[in-house]
Design a protein around this nucleic acid. Structure first.
Lengths: 239, 239
DNA sequence: GAGTGGTCTAGACCACGAG
DNA sequence: TCGTGGTCTAGACCACTCA
């Protein structure tokens, strides 16, 4: 038994995929659509919510519902490249950054394995493709490893690459959840659209955490790729 | 300006975390809660939807809303252990499995790098903790590498470990999305709760894909962990 | 200011689950 | 059967965007 909203969502989905509704175009207003399908506005909004959850439609308050499309996929590359992996995450994109000094909350203290209240440098990045936000990153670095001046990701990567005890391990924890209200606003996505959340901790040979990064990527167009080469019995140093 | 539903959700969330509402207990009916907060049932339901999205509350149609809790977290271990990594994913859990023979659809053909229409063996697992489903896995193996008889994950792992050209690479693609209606039903989660979706492709030294696995894990209690040891002398110049 | 989406209401009717 | 949640309605009022 397909409910009313699913039937409407299916119809609109077809119109989008068949090209009757083109990417970037504004849909008729919700009132007009509700009249066209002879449903109440609430029902129609529920139908649109399904399409938002799939990332097919973007709502803009006070303006309209727009067909999304043509957005390039974001692929976060995990693993060896990770500490410097601003690769696809911020490759051809604009970016805004903000650097502040904070004290470690208990959560951050655990993550970075430092005493609560330690001085940390926090860097917040938001990367954009055109006007569309593509991702958010909070980076935390022990204060003595970061200058107080503003840090760009390339600078962080260089610092890490030249770190005295060489880096030894990168641990990445990936989870799926709904965005917080702030994240939904910052990424301009619907609160009902899942985000991919990555927590990356980089450790040097002495066991010290030199960087923790919390990344949030919109689920409709982002994924993370991890490639593992399996060593047989022969030690191959090929990269 | 917190909206009404957020205020209600916050209040209920507090009551849950503070122990006034205990795990497994049924909440008052939606009508009673609506009366208590002096809001309409729709608004109250919206508040509950927020908690469902966080995995704090489980709705059961015709029965009530229940506080979830005490569910153990699922950690999928990626990387080297992956091909055999039924570790935590199905470790102390019950499991149901179903094996069928299918022909490769275009999507699967791409994933497995075989001609469309090739014979594949499909294995569907659902793992449970008690009555609660914990994860779904679709595994696809070229038909000539799998016997037609039913396969359990341990058997698959053994087969892969003894594969003639040794395994050389595991590639895992992780994404976050909302579940399909079938997935939501099978995992007994709300359609508004994000799932973690993993596509794992295992390749042997000859470049042949020997296994593809599509895993779906509930976002509220699952995450994936990837640990990468960095080789010292090798310094990747840039991303 | 005109038009858009956002929130909320009060209530009807349907579908499911347990006794 | 009865109480639960699920879907939907018709409409009020608020908040935002853009001309």
């Amino acid at each position: 038994m397909p409910s009313r909203r699913h039937a409407i969502a299916d119809d609109l989905r077809h119109q989008i995929s068949s090209g009757h509704l083109k990417a970037g175009k504004r849909l008729p207003s919700e009132a007009q659509l509700a009249a066209h399908y002879t449903v109440s506005t609430s029902t129609l909004r529920n139908a649109l919510a399904l399409l938002q959850g799939e990332g097919l439609v973007e709502k803009i308050h006070g303006n309209g519902n727009f067909v999304r499309g043509g957005l390039s996929r974001i692929t976060y590359i995990g693993g060896a490249a990770a500490p410097a992996s601003w690769n696809a995450f911020c490759a051809p994109l604009q970016m805004t950054a903000r650097t502040t000094s904070i004290e470690a909350s208990s959560h951050l203290a655990t993550l970075l394995n430092v005493p609560p209240g330690s001085s940390l440098t926090e860097v917040l990045f938001i990367t954009h493709e055109g006007k569309t936000p593509h991702g958010m990153a909070h980076i935390y670095i022990p204060h003595d490893l970061a200058s107080a001046t503003s840090l760009l990701p390339e600078q962080i990567a260089v610092r890490l690459a030249n770190h005295r005890p060489p880096l030894s391990e990168v641990q990445e924890r990936v989870s799926a959840r709904l965005p917080t209200r702030q994240e939904a606003t910052a990424l301009r996505i619907s609160p009902s659209l899942a985000v991919l959340s990555l927590a990356r901790v980089t450790t040097d040979a002495s066991g010290r955490v030199v960087e923790a990064a919390l990344l949030v990527l919109p689920g409709d167009r982002a994924d993370a790729l991890f490639t593992t080469r399996l060593v047989t019995e022969e030690r191959s140093s090929k990269g």
